Amino acid sequence: MNIDLQSLIGQGENQSLEFKSAKVHSNSLAKEMVAFANTSGGAILLGVEDDGSISGLPDDKNYEEWASNIARNNVIPALSLRVEQLLIDSQSVLYIEVPKGPEKPYQTQQNQFLTRVGSTNRIATQGELMRMFQQSGMFHFDQVAVPKTSINDLNMAALDQYFTPYEIEFSKETEAERKQLLINTDILAISGETTVGGLLMFGINPSRYLPQASIMFAHFDGTEPSAKLFNRQEIIGTLPYQVDTAVAILKNHLVRPSTIEGMKRVDTVALPPDRVLREMIVNACVHRNYGITGAQIRLFIYDDRIECISPGRLPNSVTVEKLRFGVSHASNPVLLKFMDNLRYIDRLGRGFPMIFREMEKLGKTVEVTEFGEELRVVISLT
């Protein structure tokens, strides 16, 4: 590793950097590892005091082996680190690189789930812990029962239409048979309440119980959020309705400059194909975190780009780089199943690779970034 220790120390402790004395207790070092792994990763400099002064490492043990053993034995599940002992001002300092954990959530032997906030660590909140379990695939929010709902909140005509290809006449089943069928297909929970996924797919009015489950659309006259608004509207309803409506609105608002060549009108600017727009919106609806209240999908058109921002980070095993090659993970398996059956999506991981491929053909860029608890997809128009 080529590491500029002097520059690192000059930054001071921050969101991704921690200083520790060589006298630190193993449990204290484990807490730092857990906090970094549960957040976005970071580095620990062992042998550097809180004020940035270099105290170095004594010759009493092999610190590389010691730190690695703490990551294996004092962190649950075990972590793999990058560790290197370096020299600065004739003093030894141990550089410990803690990755963004692929198996969140991590905890200490004292059962503490910690996260990194600024230059300090704190106990994860219930919401943060829930999101980490979602990212790990150990918990799926779309299978959770929605309080105060029942079968009466479901659209019977939509259910009839959905089950017809399976040769099931839903409306002609007995009440007990209908309830059992909906439980077996994850539309109803055992309690008789709808699941989040069932309500989003077949609900009469999903936003009544899940106000965060909507798309906020805005068209700006410029390239910044402060620009004048051409239009702004909220798209609510079932996920199929939201997807179809959002695609239609996008197409209606995308300006298609054209010219006359011979007897034909020809577009002079290549805009994203319809299937690119559709795939971007479907992915946002199917893979977003519906457990984050007060956060909607935001779909923005600027003069030079389209932005689609969805609440929730990528699952543990998926990175932005892997998306390009079709690596995916079912954050919401109930929604994925129904949207797949309704032909809105497939499970072969071809969505994002298609978006990149189609836009590259047009000479346009696609940027995918994680920012806080959001995933942002930006498609260039110029």
Rank of each mutant, 00 (worst) to 15 (best):
V48W: 02
G203Y: 00
T185P: 03
G127T: 05
S26L: 12
S380G: 13
Q212N: 12
K228T: 09
E307L: 15
D267R: 09
G198L: 10
S328H: 15
H140F: 15
A176S: 14
G137E: 14
E49M: 13
V318C: 04
M156N: 09
V247S: 00
E261I: 10
G192S: 12
N27K: 12
F217E: 01
Q15A: 14
F19G: 03
L348T: 10
E177Y: 10
D221L: 14
E261N: 13
K61E: 11
E128K: 06
S26P: 00
G101K: 07
Q242P: 04
A158T: 06
T382S: 15
M132I: 05
I215D: 00
F36D: 05
V269L: 14
P353A: 03
R122H: 14
G349R: 06
I306Q: 05
P206K: 01
Q110H: 11
I297V: 15
Q109F: 10
L271Q: 05
I44D: 11
V266R: 15
I297R: 02
L45H: 01
R256M: 12
V117W: 04
L362R: 04
D59R: 06
P206R: 00
E97S: 14
Q126C: 07
L348E: 08
L17C: 08
I306M: 06
I379F: 05
S171T: 06
M354Y: 00
E18C: 06
A78H: 13
K172C: 00
E370Q: 15
L129M: 05
D50R: 03
L129F: 03
P102G: 02
S226I: 05
G363Q: 06
I96K: 08
N14E: 10
S21N: 10
P273L: 07
I235N: 00
R116V: 04
M201W: 03
G42K: 07
